[in-house]
Design a protein around this nucleic acid. Structure first.
Lengths: 193, 193
DNA sequence: GAAAAATGTTGAACAAGTTCAACTCGACTA
DNA sequence: TAGTCGAGTTGAACTTGTTCAACATTTTTC
């Protein structure tokens, strides 16, 4: 079952009964996305939430100067959406693009509200997920303020080696908040040592 | 009642019945904190969650070089805690300090679990709060990557004038991720124009 | 399999932001 | 009342990271 991964993921955080597991999973359907295809493009309203089963995605914005800014990467076991757009029914600033052929368990916005109503423990589950997510955002902000580009790069490849290995330097640099030219220079320097 | 503000705050996001409001509020107690006093210091485990009723707080870390890094400011109507420490019962990296004489509605960790169990709609409420918080963190990260220090400063004082007016330049600069010397130079330049 | 397009590399000039040290000013304290 | 302490200012030298342009290399596309 493709839902096995989702159930395992839930169980890492909370104990669901068999019935609860089934109720939770029944709203999700599996979708395959080809490399380079977009699950969401800026301007669209995000009407789904996704859980990555296979592959990898990049979530990024494009600013006024045309620079891409990567918010995060989502590999297997990660959730995927534009929360702002999803919550407030407004056009998204984000692009969600597959970095390779991928599979995602999708739940529609409508079904998500139904799920919350029918299964109170789903509220608890997502409340915990969101809490964890905040911790990650806070830590990333502190790293951005207190570490140099080189230190952030090292941190990234050490902590997310599987993701890092799938990326082009341009994608990595847009996550770190530096230019790709400078990343190239950082890499050269660390080789030299 | 000191709980009026809390009830108003909830109502902005969700509709609670009178009974639910009472059940929700009964776990909170009001605490007064003097200017410069700490609600939490790094090394301690965060065993509470707070809702600011009056005053203002600064939540910050101190890194290895001794630099202060402000995560956020919490004025009236904001929530206050170290989520990581609270969730995982581990020593906090954060300091929560009152910038002026302040009042906070406090709920203990123990009562928070009781509240979640006794009032399912509390799960929904905090789930929504956390979602909103993530949106704010994501936006801040993008600003940090795509705007200059001067632009971030302008954004801050335009969007949070009440908070900004209470801060010293050192506090502001530690929020923006720059040195206080550089903030001083930014301010001088924008005066000149 | 060739052409086109995107990716990575390098250097030189530049801009943004830091560091350190010296100085001013007010506020609190003995 | 003097003294100290923390906050803000300024300048000079420095470091980090950017920009632009040229070129090499790989990947994609037809």
């Amino acid at each position: 079952m493709t839902n096995d991964l989702l159930i395992k993921h839930i169980s890492r955080n909370l104990t669901f009964s068999k019935t609860e597991q089934e109720e939770f999973c029944k709203y999700f359907f599996l979708e395959s996305i080809e490399k380079k295809a977009f699950l969401l493009q800026q301007g669209q309203v995000c009407k789904f939430e996704g859980f990555v089963v296979e592959g990898c995605f990049r979530i990024f914005t494009i600013d006024k100067k045309g620079n891409e800014n990567t918010l995060y990467f989502a590999a297997k076991d990660w959730w995927l959406m534009d929360i702002d757009s999803f919550m407030n029914h407004k056009p998204s600033d984000l692009n969600i693009q597959a970095l390779e052929n991928s599979k995602v368990l999708i739940i529609s916005q409508k079904d998500k509200s139904t799920l919350y109503d029918s299964l109170p423990v789903a509220e608890k589950f997502f409340r915990i997920m969101f809490q964890k997510s905040i911790v990650a955002w806070q830590r990333r902000l502190i790293r951005n303020h207190s570490l140099t580009a080189k230190e952030r790069y090292s941190h990234f490849i050490e902590n997310y080696p599987e993701i890092a290995s799938k990326l082009t330097d341009r994608q990595t640099s847009s996550y770190l908040g530096i230019t790709h030219e400078f990343l190239s220079k950082i890499k050269k320097k660390s080789q030299a040592q």
